[in-house]
């Protein structure tokens, strides 16, 4: 059974205007998204900024109000009520390691926060747990008494991870966990996240805009555009057989290190651009949004118009 199941999730933000501050319209940040994540897998959510990928994560954990749709965690409906048990098993890693740690608190108090909320530990046990956690994320015991500003970005993100795994959750929502870090530190944090995934049997919902990282990290990937899914499939399917023009465009935009491939890359990009110009309306409806998903294999779903498929 899937550990997390999202059914037709919609999160709309009201646009208020006028003298009486009435709701005149909605921004459809997330517009009918469904997916499920298997235990122990990493599910990647990719899209440009403003596509609603972060909003999905925040909606699942309860930081945004869900307009409609259902979220099931281990088969339990957690759409509106977030029980203590669920909170404990569902944690989040935040994007910005600089603002996600309270600058007024010591590392000890930051990591102990979830422990103090959910578990009754004596002072000694608490210290011992935090020492273990710090060791797990590769920081020294002495860090405990320091304040967040005394650490580098990568270290701070690892402190954020230590806080998220303190309660041994089953699912972690990682909202662009490395996008605020420089490339060498990105790899370090990502490898570390993979290590603890194996060690603790974690499941990740990995939100990112970086296709390279997603390729390295995720088992299943979905591509989002303007609040809707355009394509969903396994890593191989998305990277080797992209079907939607938006996915193709994203993939063709990945820079190639090898200079001898330069002309080839250029031709590919040109071809994709041509297809985009000519067949735009086969992929996007009159409002410029993606169509609903159609399965083209067991795991691979693409947002296409019905008849386009037949033409192929």
């Amino acid at each position: 059974m899937a550990i997390l199941e999202v059914k037709d999730l919609k999160i709309y933000f009201p646009i208020k205007a006028g003298l009486l501050n009435r709701t005149v319209d909605h921004i459809k940040a997330v517009d009918g998204v469904s997916f499920q994540i298997e235990q122990g897998k990493t599910y990647g959510l990719v899209g440009e900024s403003g596509s609603g990928k972060s909003t999905i994560g925040r909606g699942i954990i309860g930081l945004e109000k869900i307009t409609s749709g259902k979220v099931y965690f281990n088969g339990v409906d957690i759409t509106s009520k977030n029980g203590k048990e669920i909170r404990k098993n569902l944690q989040m890693i935040f994007q910005d390691p600089y603002s996600s740690l309270n600058p007024r608190k010591r590392i000890l108090d930051i990591i102990a926060e979830p422990l103090r909320n959910f578990e009754r530990l004596t002072k000694k046990e608490e210290i011992k747990r935090i020492e273990e956690l710090l060791e797990l994320v590769g920081l020294s015991k002495e860090s405990m008494m320091k304040y967040p500003h005394q650490f580098s970005g990568g270290q701070r993100q690892r402190i954020g991870i230590a806080r998220a795994i303190a309660l041994k959750p089953k699912l972690i929502i990682a909202d662009e966990p490395v996008s605020a870090l420089d490339v060498s530190v990105q790899a370090q944090v990502l490898n570390f996240m993979q290590d603890i995934q194996k060690e603790l049997g974690l499941t990740y919902l990995f939100i990112s805009h970086d296709l390279g990282i997603v390729k390295h990290f995720c088992d299943e990937i979905s591509i989002m555009y303007k609040g809707r899914y355009v394509e969903q499939g396994t890593k191989e399917e998305i990277f080797n057989h992209p079907q939607h023009i938006y996915t193709k465009r994203l993939l063709s935009a990945i820079p190639d290190m090898n200079p001898s491939n330069r002309d080839k890359q250029f031709r590919i990009r040109k071809k994709v651009q041509q297809e985009f110009d000519q067949r735009y309306h086969d992929y996007f409806d009159s409002e410029g949004l993606a169509y609903s998903l159609k399965p083209i294999s067991e795991t691979h779903l693409v947002a296409l118009q019905e008849d386009v498929q037949k033409v192929r």
């Binding site: 309860g62 930081l63 989040m92 935040f94 910005d96 603002s99 979830p114 954020g160």
Partner: peptide, 22 residues
């Protein structure tokens, strides 16, 4: 709106504690 407040919410800290301690 800052992440550390959001983080405290996801960690199950009560509103009262977040307001006066964070």
């Amino acid at each position: 709106e800052l992440d550390y407040v959001q983080a405290s919410k996801t960690l199950g800290t009560s509103h009262f504690k977040i307001i006066f301690r964070e």
